[in-house]
Design a protein around this nucleic acid. Structure first.
Lengths: 334, 334
DNA sequence: TTGTAAGCGTTATCAG
DNA sequence: CTGATAACGCTTACAA
């Protein structure tokens, strides 16, 4: 399986390498019909396909971007990545996906590895633990777009959602249904996103004159959610709860199931995230739905724009979530 | 942001490019401590990082593999891909993921694009629609591993699961609980996997002396599942059902919900696939669980082996699924 | 309209 | 132990 190169094609067609190159790059302007035909035939005959690596070396563009995902286990990441890939494909670009499992060290390693591979730009779900590095990228004007999370003090384009107002609205919805004892369950407040969601929760309570109670907020690692909830429900149990993302929701449900709590009845629930089975669950789960596909598309669009005609002013896009009221939250509490 | 190259490092260190190259590739055997130090310093100073593209061109290895996934929407693909990536990382390889949405044309395009990018090998969830191409790859001894599906008459390594016996066991389990009218819902029988699952279903019935009824098997596109089930349940409704994958399960649940069918009570259910929320569903869902992570790891392992010391005899690994009996199927039917 | 030749940033071969 | 020098396969001035 010796690879066939442009030289082979040139020989076969009886022209020079550069002519073949012209042909392949669609620069037909000054090319005789005849040469065109000859080359075409030779390409066919040898079933030649150009070596992108060689081209990249010369052009200093790889037509590849890197995606640094925090954790592909979150449904949202999968959707966003899919959108990015779909968009890239249309632009004849490709994406290489790396998963940091939210570990800043891995993030660092991946970023440098991707740069060594000469990717044209990076879409990052930033772990938040590499301020230095982010700033470095900014300084170098390396094409980067942050997704899902923003980083204080780093001025690069970012695609986020209206976390704060979304949660505010969700909690308001619960209050309107007579809930006064509303809990929030979230992973540790290590990210922008999570902090914003908590803020939204606080704002809603304040707005409606309800007291903020420490015991009603649990921000602990996933493994610790069930025990934390056990404590939370020991006395004065909340009648409604907001899960700050899909994974914490799973834990909440585990707790509910173990304790025979009827969702929607004993406990109203709203989840921040697109849950695949929200509709078919019994009762159907009210969600704050994120425009994941749009987030990905927008991110890719912004990045590719940066790549093409840099520099571009960094811009933050705040996309809108929607509160999809289903059965788990819609019953008036008495 | 002019990139710093090996030449720069060489100059800075006062040695030649080749020496720097030696150094970077850990060929210290004949290198004086002093030169080593000098180069080390220069690298640091210029914060040099090698250009992988150039290296790839020279070495004819990119340390990248391609993954051609049929449809990342299936939970199984995500898990498998994750495993592949994790394994690759350990081998200092990287994966570029492409999603064909089960379209053979796209599959073809992606395969050639990845080869143009000189990936060292390919892990494919084959759509089945490119026999020609698969055989071509085989002939060229291009490193390939199929995952999830095998292709008749194409002799390349494959990682699959025991689809047939798994479904046989699942149906037997239902029969043991007194179900005699058992349905199977599957997407169209376009893939090896789906055909095998149907076979398993048939075998189980036969084994237990139950008649195979055409009306109890629906193999239609996802959109058509709900209507098909409406017809199926119009008369002599089944009391148990096997969903051949996660997506058809979703449709089944939609139907059940719309028609007020109580899962586990009016209708026992078993799903072929790992369902994230199987445990927390009410009732918890019995699944045939696939060793997705293992599949991915094994596939990557096999591929990398092929890449390193080809040629390797093609081998098919059949991994074992497990029937995780939960509440949706476990009630004896009377 | 087409060919020549000089890179792109590495690695590999072989002298020294 | 280190350094020239020639690839790798392509693009791109510039010549012809």
């Amino acid at each position: 399986m010796k690879r066939v190169t442009m030289a082979d094609v040139a020989k076969e067609a009886g022209v020079s390498k550069s002519t073949v190159s012209q042909f392949l790059n669609g620069r037909f302007e000054y090319m005789s019909e005849e040469t065109k035909k000859k080359i075409e035939r030779a390409v066919q005959q040898l079933s030649y396909s150009p070596n992108v690596v060689a081209r990249s070396l010369k052009q200093k563009r790889t037509s590849m971007i890197g995606i640094i995902a925090a954790n592909i286990v979150h449904g949202i990441s999968t959707e966003v990545c899919q959108a990015i890939e779909d968009y890239c494909q249309k632009q004849d670009m490709h994406a290489i996906l790396c998963n940091t499992y939210d570990d800043p060290e891995k993030e660092k390693k991946y970023i440098s590895m991707l740069r060594a591979r000469q990717v044209d730009g990076l879409i990052i779900f930033p772990s938040g633990g590499n301020q230095e590095l982010y700033r470095q990228l900014e300084k170098e004007a390396y094409p980067v777009v942050f997704v899902d999370r923003k980083i204080e003090g780093v001025d690069v384009s970012a695609i986020v959602v209206d976390n704060r107002s979304a949660v505010r609205r969700a909690v308001a919805h619960l209050i309107e249904r007579n809930h006064h004892n509303i809990a929030l369950v979230t992973p540790p407040l290590t990210t922008y996103t999570r902090k914003e969601r908590l803020e939204g929760y606080k704002e809603a309570l304040k707005e409606r004159g309800l007291p903020f109670q420490d015991k009603n907020v649990k921000s602990v690692p996933y493994e610790a959610i069930v025990p934390a909830m056990e404590e939370m429900f020991r006395e004065d149990p909340p009648t409604a709860l907001v899960a700050a993302n899909d994974l914490s929701f799973m834990e909440v449900m585990k707790f509910a199931k173990e304790n025979g709590l009827k969702i929607g009845q004993d406990l109203a629930i709203i989840v921040f995230d697109n849950i695949k089975f929200a509709d078919i669950y019994e009762p159907a789960v009210t969600t704050i739905s994120q425009p994941a596909y749009e987030m990905g598309t927008k991110a890719a669009e912004l990045l590719i724009e940066q790549i093409m005609k840099q520099p571009v002013e960094p811009q933050t896009h705040v996309l809108k979530t929607s509160l999809l009221v289903r059965e788990s939250s819609n019953r008036a509490f008495s």
